[in-house]
Design a protein around this nucleic acid. Structure first.
Length: 568
RNA sequence: GCCCCCAUCGUCUAGCCCGGCCCAGGACACCGGCUUUUCAAGCCGAGAACAGGGGUUCAAAUCCCCUUGGGGGUACCA
């Protein structure tokens, strides 16, 4: 009887699951599924200082979100709770003279022999003797190191195949030596390439700090006020303490200071306990951080299936021109001999393209719900009859909390910016969400796009001139002696003549076309001024669709206000 | 420094193991065109690569060697 294949994913819960880890998990999962084996999870929390329960929970949640399931869900082992196993192994090595004490730690004595092993993706790998020094297997805090724990656990859990990224390739000899010394079986190994940034550096959480650092530096160089920043970002005193400068020496803040600032954990500052500093800086300064973690992609509006598809393709392919596939396909076709050896650069454009295609294929109703939820998150504005039924209890609380703070708290930070008073908000129910979902489906790269692109539909202040793009106003409305404004003024009557009952795409377009013909104007000369009047810019979906969603009253009101605001 | 790994269009890659069907195929991006009331979408089309040098062979992207380039490791992190 052939052995049952057992794979595992063993993250250390020191932070969110990043895409590299997700891909490793996906491959292990797919490999096990493909061979009817088991896929197990294990939490490697032997670094007491950096591990946390919150991170562990988030990790599991992210894995579930990308569609993975594991066979030991009832009892995911945590290394911190299996010290007895490691201690037993260490005792065994000690008494066999294969390990020794050194300053309170225990080191493994490396046998002086070259070590070679077979790697399923790389072939035979040999490391000459004397390359590795005696390494620590038990730290002074009594916890085992990664190397010891991995070897003991993999054997204990019956892991037959270890599939991981190349960063572990040079650790493998250590593990094999340990297995030999402990009389444990050697699993089959396979190491694949790393996921890199476009510039060739390793894609890691550090990239967020790097971006934040660059942006902050640039902002300061352009005359940004460090005092204001400090006040907004953390409390000012914390910031001053942190960089160890006197209060009025903003100019002396060096890149090094910023770097240190960014690498500190947010938990060290009283004002910040939820968000990490790069996130906070991005929020304060208004730029976006690169997505690195699975959760980042989720928040940015990527579909889990798409993420998996793209990630799987980054280092594996089915061997033909097929690129679009789901996890089920992966589970049925994944094989190690088609895994690439080289590293691969993460191409956000291609991921976005895949995501865009996937959104295009989503049922409109499904997109409408996604849209409604994101609308709520951005504006705390549940469409009538209420998103309440679509929201989780927690989200609802968040919203409830948010609206009660609107315009109240001085210096009080809301989870999101306070909802602007939208003149059309009252009317924004699920049906409107559905309409917008339909319109924005073909033009969205992410699930967030309908909210961003359709902003003018629900986030509109009738009395704010600054929401009109000045360039659009000049070019479309004022150019040629207020040509556009004149058209707009006439259009009021034309649109008003469309009966309420006929306020739909066809009738509106027909009316607009008729008007254009009657006045010997190109359609663009009519539609563009209209577009600017109701959306503030030259970009919107088809004019008929746009006006239909806005409704007759809102449309006429916006036109009237536009004439008043831009007509001077 | 030392050790290990890797190397096809800008990017992800097919082809390489079992040399000839490959003056190298697909996808994303880019560029051009069609469509068009804007922006997208859609459709059509173009450009774009075997890192370099030596071998082996009738024949090399495919096999061998060297060089160069990239990555990883070298922790009481995992």
């Amino acid at each position: 009887m052939p052995q049952t294949i057992v794979t595992r994913f063993a993250p250390s819960p020191t932070g969110a699951l990043h895409v590299g880890g997700a891909r490793t998990a996906l491959y292990n999962w797919a490999f096990a599924k493909r061979h009817g084996g088991k896929f197990l999870l294990r939490l490697e929390d032997t670094d007491q200082a950096r591990s946390s329960d919150a991170a562990a929970d988030a990790m599991l949640k992210d894995l579930a979100w990308i569609g993975l399931d594991w066979d030991n869900a009832n009892d995911v082992p945590r290394q911190s709770q299996r010290l007895h196993l490691y201690n037993a192994a260490i005792e065994k090595l000690l008494s066999a003279g294969k390990a020794y004490e050194d300053n309170g730690a225990i080191r493994f004595k490396i046998p002086a022999e070259p070590i070679s092993f077979h790697d399923e993706v790389r072939g035979d790998v040999t490391i000459p003797a004397g390359q590795t020094e005696d390494f620590v297997i038990r730290k002074t805090d009594g916890f085992p190191t990664y190397h010891l724990a991995v070897v003991v656990d993999d054997a204990d859990m019956g892991v037959t195949h270890v599939l991981r990224a190349q960063e572990h390739l040079s650790n493998t000899p250590k593990h094999i030596l340990l297995q030999n010394a402990l009389g444990l079986p050697r699993p089959t190994y396979a190491h694949f390439g790393l996921i890199l940034n476009q510039d060739g550096s390793k894609m890691s959480k550090r990239d967020k700090s790097k971006t934040a650092q660059q942006e902050l530096r640039r902002w300061l160089d352009q005359g940004g006020n460090i005092e204001w920043f400090a006040e907004e970002c953390v409390s000012r005193n914390d910031f001053i303490d942190m960089i160890g400068k006197s209060e009025d020496s903003a100019k002396k803040v060096s890149p090094q200071d910023i770097k240190e600032f960014l690498t500190k954990k947010s938990s060290e500052y009283s004002e910040l306990d939820v968000k990490d500093i790069p996130e906070r800086i991005a929020e304060v300064l208004g730029f976006t951080l690169p997505e690195i973690d699975v959760a980042d992609f989720r928040e940015s509006g990527y579909l889990p299936d798409t993420l998996c598809n793209y990630l799987a393709l980054l280092g594996w392919n089915p061997g033909n021109d097929l690129e679009k596939f789901d996890n089920t396909f992966l589970a049925g076709n994944f094989s190690l001999d088609r895994v690439n050896k080289g590293d691969s650069k993460f191409d956000r454009e291609k991921l976005a393209s895949f995501n865009s295609d996937a959104i295009n294929e989503m049922p409109v109703d499904e997109l409408a719900i996604e849209f409604a939820e994101r609308l709520f998150h951005a504006y705390g504005m549940p469409p009538n009859p209420g998103l309440k039924y679509l929201l989780t209890e927690k989200d609802y609380q968040l919203w409830d909390n948010a609206i009660h703070h609107v315009g109240v708290g001085e210096g009080q930070r809301l989870p999101t910016s306070p909802p602007p008073i939208a003149s059309g908000a009252k009317k924004f129910d699920m049906e409107h969400c559905r309409l917008l979902a339909e319109i924005y489906r073909p033009r969205s790269k992410t699930l967030c796009d309908p909210v961003k692109l359709g902003k003018f539909f629900f986030d509109w202040n009738l009395y704010a001139p600054d929401q009109y793009d000045p360039k659009a106003v000049d070019k479309i409305l004022k150019k040629n002696d207020n040509e556009g404004l004149k058209v707009l003024a006439q259009l009021q009557q034309t649109l008003n003549n469309v009966a309420d009952a006929d306020w739909n795409e066809q009738s509106i377009e027909a009316a607009v076309k008729l008007f254009a013909e009657a006045n010997a104007l190109g359609l663009g000369k009519v539609a563009q001024p209209l577009r600017v009047a109701v959306s503030g810019s030259t970009v919107s979906p088809g004019i008929g669709q746009t006006l239909t969603i806005l409704g007759k009253q809102e449309t006429l009101q916006r036109i009237a206000n536009c004439l008043a605001l831009c007509g001077q």
